[in-house]
Amino acid sequence: MRTARAHTYGAALGFLADLLLADPRRGHPVAAFGRAAGRLERALWRDHRGAGALHTALCVGGAAGTAAAATAMTRPSPGRDAGGVAAREVPYAALTAAVTWTVLGGTSLAREAAAVGAALDAGDLAGARRRLPHLCGRDPYALDADGIARAVVESVAENTSDAVVGALVWGAVAGVPGMAAFRAANTLDAMVGHRSPAYLRFGWAAARLDDVLGWPGARLTAALAALAGPDPRGAARAWRADAGAHPSPNAGPVEAAFAGALGLRLGGTLSYGGRVEHRPVLNPGGRAPVPADVARAVRLSRRVNALALAVTLTARAAAFSASAARTETAGGRERPPGKGAR
């Protein structure tokens, strides 16, 4: 229970740190991981899935292994010492808080989306186009104001899962190493998980691992968007009807749920790096997004994030309680009868 309690305190503190401080401005560990992954890519790159799988294993395994070693050094021990229970929990709680703050990006996502929305509200289309690449890789100069609004809403939906909920889910499942592995895989997918000629084979493993690790967080994000949004039935309907047609197994549910919850029509034609894609329309009965919808998407994202923290911490605490109860029961069965037993 000490580990569960320390995790709860640490994850809540890290979430609060992200809420108040956003991402570290300098020396961000995720940026350092990206630089190291880039150097390793230059050494290992071959136009082959095996080379990419090795790159992915070394990068994600290295991040998870480092986190596991730090966890082993700081995990509260069951023994007694002069410092008391609370003092033994502090190092692990501090580690959890630091890693949670590092891997979450909810506040930076909200700020970037709000900045684009503010430029659109002010009629500054050029400014909105300059800021859009901070959120997604679409060609901003091919979009009008409503097209930019749609891109921002879709990016907010997808990154609510990628930047917050998915990390919280893996923190609940596997603690600090789970959060580190998820963020490493997600970062690696953004770097090499493309369908470009250079990465179609080399980035295959990173893309598939990101799909696997992102699966539970995407479903929780969609469920919470339906719960917290203004139209729960519309969110559930769009998720059920339209998510499967999306090319991404994880972006589909969250974008469809956000579309239905907000009464918007998302998806359709878009442009990446000069390449035009025709994606399925999500919630076709909704209306086209307008600049005012950016703020609505950000508010929904914040509600989903807060609910995800509550759900994942509750689930982890319940799992630890159940495990402790089973251990205690097993110990009671195995304990030999005492001197006064009848």
Rank of each mutant, 00 (worst) to 15 (best):
202 F>H: 06
130 R>C: 06
113 A>R: 09
186 N>D: 01
257 A>N: 10
215 W>M: 05
125 L>M: 03
102 T>P: 08
139 D>N: 06
134 H>I: 00
124 D>Q: 06
170 W>C: 08
162 D>L: 09
103 V>L: 01
338 G>M: 02
109 L>Q: 09
286 G>P: 13
306 A>H: 09
190 A>Y: 05
314 T>W: 01
222 A>D: 04
207 A>D: 11
192 V>M: 02
171 G>N: 01
148 I>C: 08
149 A>P: 03
299 R>V: 11
65 G>N: 06
152 V>W: 04
138 R>S: 05
215 W>S: 04
150 R>N: 00
90 V>A: 13
130 R>S: 08
70 A>T: 07
342 R>W: 07
224 L>R: 11
86 A>M: 09
125 L>T: 00
321 S>V: 13
185 A>K: 08
177 P>H: 04
288 A>N: 10
236 A>I: 02
38 G>M: 10
23 D>V: 00
60 V>K: 00
213 L>C: 05
1 M>H: 12
258 F>D: 12
1 M>S: 15
150 R>G: 05
25 R>W: 10
83 G>T: 02
2 R>T: 14
256 A>Q: 08
35 R>C: 04
116 V>Q: 05
304 V>D: 15
26 R>N: 10
29 P>V: 09
64 A>Q: 00
307 L>S: 07
33 F>P: 03
5 R>E: 13
235 A>L: 10
164 V>Y: 07
68 A>S: 13
46 R>V: 05
214 G>R: 08
339 K>T: 10
2 R>E: 15
265 R>N: 02
136 C>L: 02
86 A>G: 03
337 P>L: 06
52 G>V: 02
244 G>C: 09
127 G>D: 11
126 A>W: 04
215 W>K: 03
1 M>A: 12
184 A>H: 00
182 F>C: 03
128 A>W: 07
163 A>S: 15
337 P>W: 03
57 A>D: 06
